[in-house]
Simulated scan of single mutants.
Amino acid sequence: MVESDQPFAVVVSDFKMPFMSGVELLAKIKEIAPETVRMVLTGYADLEVAISAVNRGDIFRFLTKPCDKDTLMSALKAGVEQYEMVQSVHELAVIQRLKDGLESTLRAFIRLVEFRDPYTAGHMDRTAEIATLIAEKVGLSSDRIEGLRLAAMVHDIGKIAIPSGILNKPGILNDAEFALIKTHSLVGSEIFELMDTGWPIARIILEHHERLDGTGYPNGLCKEDILEESQILAVADVIDAIMTHRPYRLTLGRKKTIEDLEAQKGISLNAESVEAGIELLQTEQIFKDVT
Rank of each mutant, 00 (worst) to 15 (best):
L252S: 15
R61P: 06
I145A: 04
P218W: 03
G158H: 04
E129N: 11
A53K: 03
T42Q: 03
P170Y: 03
T244E: 10
D260N: 13
P18H: 06
E81I: 01
S21Y: 06
G122T: 06
M1R: 10
V2C: 15
Q231F: 08
I181S: 05
C222N: 15
A161T: 13
V235I: 11
V10K: 06
I191L: 10
A179T: 13
G79I: 04
E190V: 00
E136W: 00
P218H: 11
G188D: 12
E48A: 14
S4K: 14
M195L: 14
E35T: 00
R246W: 09
F62D: 05
G139C: 00
E84Q: 10
K65N: 09
A263M: 08
G158D: 10
E207N: 10
A93H: 12
E103S: 12
L63V: 05
V238F: 05
R56F: 00
A53P: 03
I59N: 01
A161R: 00
I258L: 06
P163S: 07
K255S: 15
L76W: 06
D143A: 13
L26S: 03
V154E: 11
D100H: 03
L72D: 03
G214H: 11
D46F: 10
D46C: 11
G147N: 03
F192V: 10
A108Q: 12
Q82C: 09
E81P: 10
G147W: 01
F62Q: 04
M39K: 11
R56P: 05
V235F: 00
F19E: 14
R56M: 11
V49N: 11
D70R: 14
I242S: 02
Y217M: 12
A234S: 15
E228C: 10
H184R: 01
I204N: 04
T132L: 08
R56T: 07
L261R: 03
T244Q: 14
K65E: 15
F8E: 09
P18L: 08
V10P: 09
